[in-house]
């Protein structure tokens, strides 16, 4: 896939993003609940309320509000948070790195364990590893990530106090950072004690997000590997005298990765959505947590800003998945 294809895909994403903006904007204004009623106290007069509505542009008809919002977006102005009185874009960008680090850790954890489990199940077919992987992945999939979050807190934070149950970092060390990418910064600046501290906070939320994804990857990879093993090229690999391990890793795996990426790619997008509840449970200061608070407070500009950022991430992730097909499958690369 060439640079022009990537560019075309990104341009094609613009109508999608417009649709997202439109739907979120309209939905937020037709559902009951009004940001102003969350702000006013019993002593506010109707005049005060009318003034506030005017100040946030809520007195205009909805199409007019939407036009004004789009015009502001085009200027890079995502609006001002009603509850926090701060620029939405600034708020979102401040929280985004925390969510990205969490999602990335969960992704790495899920792909490594999922792939190893899938490979083990096929390598030791009809022996206990296959049964163990099948059983464990069934359980892992049956329980949603927010329940895993609660189970992990109970098991590894309360019953066995191994990991902290909330937050991103010990507030004492938080001042040491120059960027919001705490984990990345601690790794780049070679501060292993900080990285360890961050990882201990990341462990449980990342695990909660990773468990169902790892289970899906293990299952799909196992099925895809078994399918590959039935092909003639695996017979020929055997006839060439390759060991079972070499045949599995060099011949079956590259083929089996193609369907695995198809399924896992969709699931990674869902993982991003899963961060909302998991961040809430672990009081993790990311975008999901901010989105939840904004929804409770009817902070419309923040809700719009966060959903916008999530939509952009989805578009980029889907593009990355499509690009990885081309990397894995020469038949697609040349098509």
């Amino acid at each position: 896939m060439t640079a022009s294809t990537v560019l075309r895909r990104l341009l094609q994403a613009l109508p999608t993003l417009f649709g997202v903006v439109l739907i979120i904007f309209v939905l937020l204004r037709v559902v009951p609940g009004d940001p102003i009623s969350m702000m006013v106290t019993g002593e506010s007069t109707p005049d005060d309320i009318a003034r506030l509505r005017r100040a946030y542009g809520l007195d205009q008809p909805i199409p007019m509000q939407f036009a004004l919002y789009l015009a502001a977006l085009a200027r890079g102005d995502f609006g001002t948070s009603i509850t926090m009185k701060q620029d939405v874009l600034g708020l979102v960008l401040q929280r985004l790195p925390a969510t990205l680090e969490l999602a990335l850790c969960a992704f790495v954890l899920a792909t490594t364990t999922g792939m190893l489990a899938g490979l083990a199940a096929v390598r030791w077919r009809r022996h206990w590893p296959e049964a163990a992987v099948e059983g464990a992945s069934a359980v892992a999939l049956a329980i949603p990530e927010f329940l895993w979050a609660l189970i992990l807190v109970l098991a590894l934070s309360v019953a066995l106090p191994l990991f902290p149950s909330s937050g991103r970092v010990d507030p004492v060390v938080a001042t040491a950072f120059h960027t919001q990418f705490y984990l990345l910064e601690s790794l780049v600046t070679l501060q292993p004690h900080l990285a360890a501290e961050l990882l201990s906070h990341l462990a449980l939320p990342a695990l909660a997000l990773a468990i169902p994804l790892a289970a899906i990857i293990a299952r799909v990879l196992r099925t895809a590997l078994l399918e590959a093993m039935r092909q003639d090229y695996m017979l020929l690999a055997q006839v060439k005298g390759l060991s079972p391990n070499a045949a599995l890793l060099r011949h079956a795996l590259p083929n089996a990765l193609i369907p695995t990426v198809t399924v896992a790619g969709v699931q990674v997008v869902l993982l991003l959505g899963g961060t909302v509840l998991v961040e809430l449970i672990f009081a993790y200061p990311g975008l999901g947590n901010m989105l939840y608070r904004a929804a409770v407070n009817r902070d419309l500009p923040v809700i719009q800003g966060v959903t916008m950022v999530f939509s952009v991430l989805f578009v980029l992730l889907n593009l990355a998945v499509d690009l990885s097909y081309a990397l894995l499958d020469p038949r697609i690369r040349q098509a």
Partner: peptide, 24 residues
Amino acid sequence: RRALLGHSIAMILQNPSAALNPVL
């Protein structure tokens, strides 16, 4: 037994398109 394969015994299969690995 595996050591014989690739050294002393080789094989040609029926369907050549399927016998080659599509991604290598």
